[in-house]
């Protein structure tokens, strides 16, 4: 390996690492606020990338059907609960948000022929299509069992993951070349901006502080007038945004299939675990490490790339376990 290759690999590693860092942040965020270990995080990456690719190829993205379907399901659940609580006045807003808006979006897609739109608008359209899936999934899968143990929430997260992967295959997403230039700089810069933005959001805004309060003590936060389900929806929205945006960024670098998101998301996890699922900066640093390791591993032992990356978790866990020594009481 000469210096040039080393530098190229380093650049590659940093680009991927930045993406993993973003995902790691989303995972830490979701876990901290809702105690959900959000295995489907990677699906948003794949959905974001594939939606953009479909738009550019002039095809109707499969995520649209997902959005319409999930929207209808959420509307059904919400209307049922509104009828039960005799809050019939809420029904129009529910229908507007979950059914009418997605339908308008569908109409727009039919009318606009997105393949001819400027790239920036295509990116925005992709995000608008994918991001609402986050809070909808929270509403349907996690909100009804928000008080369950971490273990149950994790199993549900895995169930959501396999469902989404299956649906991804069903809507047969295709992959096409996207046309973002100056990828490395863009990826690293966007990650940095998002990380700083998240820092300010959590440290300086009342919404961010409310989310942190919910993370620390759900009951206490509720007594202070913070709605736990609102906090859950917000952080799932944020996680979906981060995921879909990562997908848009990563699409030109890596080939994305309907099930690629899982491995990408898991690499973010390895980073998040370095940070103990609690610390944002350490998680980001861990994710960068994963990216670099992956990149150099693919040079020396490409067949064993995944083995090496996922085996990294063992020394990391060992290190973390040596740092903790208490008997934890499971909920």
């Amino acid at each position: 390996m000469d210096l040039q290759i080393a530098l190229l690999l380093g650049q590659d590693g940093i680009t991927n690492g930045a993406i993993y860092a973003l995902l790691a942040l989303a995972l830490v965020l979701v876990f901290a606020v809702t105690r959900v270990i959000f295995i489907p995080q990677g699906e948003f990456v794949a959905f974001g990338a594939l939606t953009l690719a479909s738009l550019q190829a002039g095809k109707l993205p499969g995520t649209l059907w997902l959005l319409l379907g999930l929207g209808a399901a959420v509307a059904l659940v919400e209307v049922a609960s509104a009828l039960r609580d005799r809050h019939t006045r809420r029904i129009p807003a529910i229908l507007l948000l979950n059914c009418v808006l997605p339908l308008i979006l569908a109409g727009l897609l039919f009318v606009l022929s997105p393949a001819n739109l400027p790239l920036a608008l295509q990116v925005v359209l992709s995000l608008v299509l994918v991001v609402p899936l986050g809070p909808m999934i929270y509403r349907l899968a996690f909100q009804p069992i928000a008080e369950a143990s971490v273990l149950v929430l994790l199993i549900v997260a895995v169930a959501v993951h396999v469902t989404l992967v299956g649906l991804g295959l069903l809507f047969s997403f295709t992959f096409g070349e996207t046309l973002l230039q100056g990828q490395t700089i863009l990826v690293v810069a966007s990650s940095a901006v998002l990380i700083v933005a998240l820092y300010f959001f959590f440290e300086r805004t009342i919404h961010g502080k409310a989310l942190r309060a919910t993370a620390m003590n759900r009951t206490g936060a509720r007594l202070m007038g913070i709605s736990a389900s609102m906090a859950g929806k917000q952080c799932f929205t944020l996680a979906a945004l981060i995921g879909a945006f990562s997908g848009v960024l990563i699409a030109p670098i890596t080939t994305i299939y309907y099930d690629s998101g899982f491995l990408i998301g898991l690499k973010g996890f390895v980073g998040a675990i370095v940070g103990g699922l609690a610390s944002y900066p350490v998680a980001a640093a861990g994710a960068m490490l994963v990216g670099l390791l992956e990149s150099y591993a693919s040079f020396w032992a490409s067949a064993f790339k995944e083995v090496i990356v996922f085996t990294l978790i063992i020394p990391v866990l060992l290190w973390r376990s040596l740092k903790t020594h208490h008997v934890d009481e499971e909920e």
């Binding site: 270990i37 273990l151 491995l263 898991l266 699922l277 973390r320 934890d328």
Partner: peptide
Amino acid sequence: AITLRMGGHYLPLGTIAWGIS
């Protein structure tokens, strides 16, 4: 020995990684 001393969710995460490896 590595994962069980920590919180309950490290074991499943560890086993996911180990399953893939």
